[in-house]
Write a protein that binds this DNA or RNA. Structure first.
Lengths: 172, 172
DNA sequence: ACGCGTCGGTTCGATGACTGAACTAAGATG
DNA sequence: CATCTTAGTTCAGTCATCGAACCGACGCGT
């Protein structure tokens, strides 16, 4: 966008959220992070985002305490970006938007299917389990490709998403 | 943003949604429409958005069949923008984002409180009623100001939101 | 020791989007 | 007839994004 600053007049928590999350690419970065992506290069390859924009967005997410930047090895120094609790709680809005897109913007059937691991039951909109009815945190979710998925992409993230995967689990 | 077009590489329904909804201002327009705002001038005054951007966004929402443009009086000709069914189903993602903002981006307590009218019970994240447990469509929701609300703004929309209001109900 | 590759960035010019103010059009109101 | 309201469009300036190139720290092979 040019989203960042200008929603001050809005007396609304949605506007507060969008000051951070409404900028171009930001929610897609969060989505990838929910899938378990942590490294700069993996975000870059999967999103096809300009490097400068990725850097700026990751910094903004870290400043907002949605992600945490940490060094996962010294020598050579390597950084990774991991969702905080605040960030993991973005799972319901992300799911709700994806669900809406699935029903109204997609022609080929669902691209991803989410299951509640303890119940082995599908998850509906609202992030509730269709079996136990409870709110399902990301930690208990598994993704697998749906009938509309594109299985031809070759970047590390797309490859990892071809099989069933626990959400948040780091890529190999 | 400059959001619109560029998410084609993404194999994801979230990206499809964001091509439309991720542009600056768009979700705030939808939020106002859920509150019952229908007229160009009301959107303009409540959002403080540049006129050209408002026109462009409303057109995009109409093209996407999220809103419908219709003439509510001849002579002088006047247009209004009303959510379609597809648009009203944006209520869960909007609520989820607002809820997240309320918990993580707001200091002053909730600004708006939503109740399920038949049950007279509060609505939680996930757009489910805390009493009957069912999914609550916007049509059955009432908004009222919460403790964090700003009651000093004087535009027609802000004034209408000072009292309890049925969602979607047109402004006077 | 040298050159090459990888990872995580920063810098830069060109392009495109957003902003705010001014202007237009069609009719109502006094 | 002049003025006001509503719903826009047009335009110049500013700001964000894009894509390509560059940089620095280090590992690895020879």
């Amino acid at each position: 966008m040019g989203l960042g600053k200008n929603y001050e007049g809005q007396d609304c928590s949605l506007a507060r959220s969008l000051e951070l999350l409404g900028e171009r690419w930001t929610l897609l970065i969060v989505r990838d992070a929910l899938y378990g992506v942590r490294r700069y290069g993996d975000f870059l390859a999967h999103l096809g985002i300009p490097r400068a924009v990725l850097s700026q967005r990751l910094s903004a997410l870290v400043d907002a305490e949605v992600m945490e930047r940490r060094r996962y090895q010294e020598s050579p120094p390597r950084e990774e970006y991991v969702l905080t609790g605040k960030g993991r709680e973005l799972w319901p809005p992300v799911l709700a938007l994806a669900h809406w897109g699935e029903r109204h913007m997609s022609d080929a059937g669902p691209r991803r299917v989410f299951r509640h691991v303890p119940c082995d039951a599908p998850i509906g909109a609202g992030a509730t389990c269709s079996a136990c009815g409870a709110y399902v945190p990301v930690e208990e979710v598994e993704v697998r490709p749906g009938p509309g998925a594109d299985l031809t992409r070759e970047d590390p993230v797309s490859v990892a998403l071809r099989g069933p995967r626990r959400m948040l689990e780091p890529l190999p």
